[in-house]
């Protein structure tokens, strides 16, 4: 009723972005004319990125092309980007999904069984205080650069976040619903199934939206330091060979994937909380 959304395409929103790109291109071109040798390292122009940086990814196809070079090709570059994007997205999503499922499951278990809560609440509170990035060296020692290490690392970080989120959400369930359920004849199991779980879903989906951002960040950090593949690895390679343009390309790819996944999560959370009243303070 209150959240009436305009569906029509509003081109004015994109004026700022287009303006920014034009200014970029003008400045970079002037820079390029004055410093033809170094401009693409410090501040590559858009036409340089399209003509050189993108097809240049072809040289990232395996060790051999990295050392001996390879022909620039859009098709080969596309294959490279597709492969490494796939690897990164798979890592991030699998860690995210398993972390969220484990986190909300254990959170619910902690909420309902006092023994379990007493056992793991404090260790978790301590674990939460460790910045996830601080754990990377530890995971490197334990797992090397192996895939399972990156997976466990992302899963663990998301798990800790979501568990705490779930426990808080359970504490916030309005008491009136619990009283109502008992007077309608609910037992403890039914209370969880029919009251606690539906009542905490809005807060959990809020937590998931935060977790998506975090999982990109820590997934990338893991790839910087430990992995031999993935977009994070390509980013580090580009940096080592001073391919600044390619770094921009990867950044844009990240933005693109993040927008898609974010929108999917928003669609999902709007669906599961469709019963909830929504107020939007931003018009």
């Amino acid at each position: 009723m209150i959240s009436i959304r305009k569906r029509s395409f509003n081109y004015k929103k994109y004026n700022g972005v287009i303006g920014l790109l034009i200014i970029w291109e003008i400045i970079a071109t002037i820079f390029e004319i004055n410093n033809p040798e170094t401009s693409h390292i410090i501040f590559p122009s858009l036409h340089y990125i399209v003509a050189h940086s993108i097809p240049g990814f072809a040289t990232f196809w395996g060790m051999q092309s990295l050392i001996f070079g390879a022909k620039y090709s859009y098709l080969e570059a596309f294959k490279v980007l597709l492969l490494h994007s796939g690897i990164t997205i798979l890592r991030v999503l699998s860690g995210l999904i398993v972390g969220v499922l484990l986190g909300s499951g254990i959170g619910l278990l902690m909420g309902s069984v006092r023994f379990i809560r007493n056992l793991i609440e404090w260790p978790l509170q301590f674990a939460r205080m460790i910045p996830p990035l601080a754990l990377i060296p530890l995971f490197l020692v334990w797992f090397g650069g192996r895939e399972i290490g990156i997976f466990i690392y992302i899963t663990f970080s998301i798990f800790v976040m979501i568990v705490v989120n779930t426990i808080q959400a359970i504490k916030n369930v309005p008491h009136k619903y619990i009283k109502y359920a008992y007077t309608m004849g609910a037992n403890k199991y039914q209370l969880y199934r029919t009251i606690i779980i539906p009542a905490i879903i809005p807060e959990i989906t809020g937590g998931i939206r935060v977790a998506v951002g975090v999982s990109w960040a820590i997934g990338l950090a893991g790839e910087y330091l430990a992995a031999q593949s993935g977009l994070g690895r390509l980013m580090i390679l580009s940096e080592q060979f001073t391919y600044t343009g390619r770094m921009f390309v990867i950044a844009v790819l990240f933005m693109f994937y993040n927008v898609i996944i974010n929108n999917l999560v928003i669609l999902f959370s709007n669906y599961v909380t469709r019963w909830q009243e929504k107020y939007s303070p931003v018009q």
């Binding site: 009136k176 619903y177 009283k179 109502y180 008992y182 007077t183 309608m184 004849g185 029919t194 009251i195 539906p198 009542a199 879903i201 019963w275 909830q276 009243e277």
Partner: peptide, 20 residues
């Protein structure tokens, strides 16, 4: 000794379940 479905309660605040 405790709540039961035999004693139904209608509360002052809205207690109907918003997700149903």
């Amino acid at each position: 000794t405790g709540p039961s479905w035999e004693r139904g309660v209608i509360f002052q605040e809205d207690s109907i379940l918003p997700w149903r």
